[in-house]
Design a binder for these strands. Sequence first.
DNA 1: TTGTACGCGTTATCAT
DNA 2: ATGATAACGCGTACAA
Lengths: 340, 340
Amino acid sequence: MADLLSVAKLAGVSRATAARAFSNPDLVRPTTRERVFDAAKQLAFRPNKVAQQLRSQATQMIGVMVPSLDNPVFAEQLQAMEVAARACGYSLLVTTSEYSPSRESDIVEEMLRQRVDGLVLTVADAGSSAVLDKLRLETTPCLLVYNPPANSGFTSIGVDNHAAGTDATRHLLALGHSRIGMVAGPLLQSDRAKQRYSGYCHAMIEAGFTPRPLVEMERHTQADLNSLTPELTGEDALTAVICTNDLLAISLMGELQREGFSVPENLSVMGFDGIALGKHIYPALCTIEQPRADIGRTAVQTLLAKIRGEICTPAPLPHALRKGESVGMPTTRKFKLGTS
Amino acid sequence: MADLLSVAKLAGVSRATAARAFSNPDLVRPTTRERVFDAAKQLAFRPNKVAQQLRSQATQMIGVMVPSLDNPVFAEQLQAMEVAARACGYSLLVTTSEYSPSRESDIVEEMLRQRVDGLVLTVADAGSSAVLDKLRLETTPCLLVYNPPANSGFTSIGVDNHAAGTDATRHLLALGHSRIGMVAGPLLQSDRAKQRYSGYCHAMIEAGFTPRPLVEMERHTQADLNSLTPELTGEDALTAVICTNDLLAISLMGELQREGFSVPENLSVMGFDGIALGKHIYPALCTIEQPRADIGRTAVQTLLAKIRGEICTPAPLPHALRKGESVGMPTTRKFKLGTS
DNA sequence: TTGTACGCGTTATCAT
DNA sequence: ATGATAACGCGTACAA
């Protein structure tokens, strides 16, 4: 691949002049400049970013680590970040941690070696994270997304999960529900879920009810109806459940319907996150919507500000309740499990 | 950030020796080696990949461009690619084209400047693509994913979309359907959809039926029931439709149910792609499953082979029929539209 | 306005 | 076994 020197030679100027023609065009006489551009075109010259990066000590790359792209929440956030970053001339180096702390460390180390200008991470648990401990000692600007800001020492972009959990619960309470449960994936892997649960507890207590224990599923993205059935039978049977993420909610609804129950008649189901698909399925998923596009954009802009040396601590982004057919008024229609 | 020279000085050796201690440990006396390692640790030395890349003329990065990460098909493929690439010591530079040809060009240009070792692209239409025309003149190894291999001149990883379309149709035919339609997003933006449609036509003709015209929706991911209603009424009303992707199918099912119809009693609905969510919704989506993990892995491995200079033209990957509750036998139950 | 020369951090060649 | 040095491609301070 042609380099600046060959361009310069073909244009009959020095390397410096050729370089200037690109980086500082006004410093070079128009005719000379054109000669350089012509030569560049003839040789199909393409500036070498690696060299530029080494020279300028900046890569214009930001490293992104999310748990998994199989969850649309992260994929959609990444989509927004990519657009925002590109608009600012930055590229994204993307990795997935698969919720594994050791992978998290390897990935961040790798990205630091690549000299990314900044990092955007979503870690399993911001409260106790080896990778964050390491990053505290580094100077590379770093930002969390989705992780609750408290206790990590890092600025974090996302909604107020506690408040969101409260709002979700209040919505159900307002409809007349009181026997409300909450379902989560593996808790250790999600500090968000914990906060949302605490918000739920807050709302329940506030309304004079006793919060129920969190029901923990084995996977993030797939509900297991059996784990929930104890809560669905008897006098105290739930009339509504909140899932800590939309995938869980959608698969729970599927399981219920597959077993012959209907949503929301037998059980109201709420999700969390607001992935796009939730609007299209039937019944449409009632959920707490995170402003994913905003989150992505804000994350990029906040990080770039940090990179420029500015100090900024953005406020939590507003969540919104998205109503949906998966939630209704509580009914007395009894569950009859095991009829299949 | 500490560099090799400072490490060397602290260890009391030359830069060359320090470098060797890492790249070629056996060439340096064990005691010296340890001194170097100690110094490196003390200074928190972290090798600079940018410099390595400039020096070695290889970035160990592969550039990935997909239309949009909002579609789980691409997100899930990317997930698989990331794991495969990381396992081989490669990183992923990820971009989204948003189905825009001009963005496609900008992105590829940018990645070439970054000197990625190879490219993995999913373009709108491999048959006529400005970006592919440009890449034909370049030497950077390049691979398509999902795009049909024919007519592009590039090797492409994916299933045989024609055959898959045929298989989908045959499945419905075998159940007794004959009035089968096909629904797609914007056709110009998806050569895959065209191939799948031609496969459908093939199967219909083969069975002695007349293929229907493709119904084109305005968006890739959201069905518009109104566009379809003409096909759902009258003597010749459809009993089954195949959608060219799962998101379209899922939203179509939602729309139908929302209007009071049931799937598959009133209309059988098939999807295409096999995104994970399809299994969990109710009715579970019957679809043609693409081996996304395989596709991702194979793409990376094929590209790396190309980068190493090997020649390899992988065969199309096998698709699979995933049965689901969204498809049933044809019934005589009439559609009654507009009853709401 | 243009050219000379140095440095960014690394690796590889050639001496010693 | 180790050290000196050139080169990767670029940007820029300084000199002309």
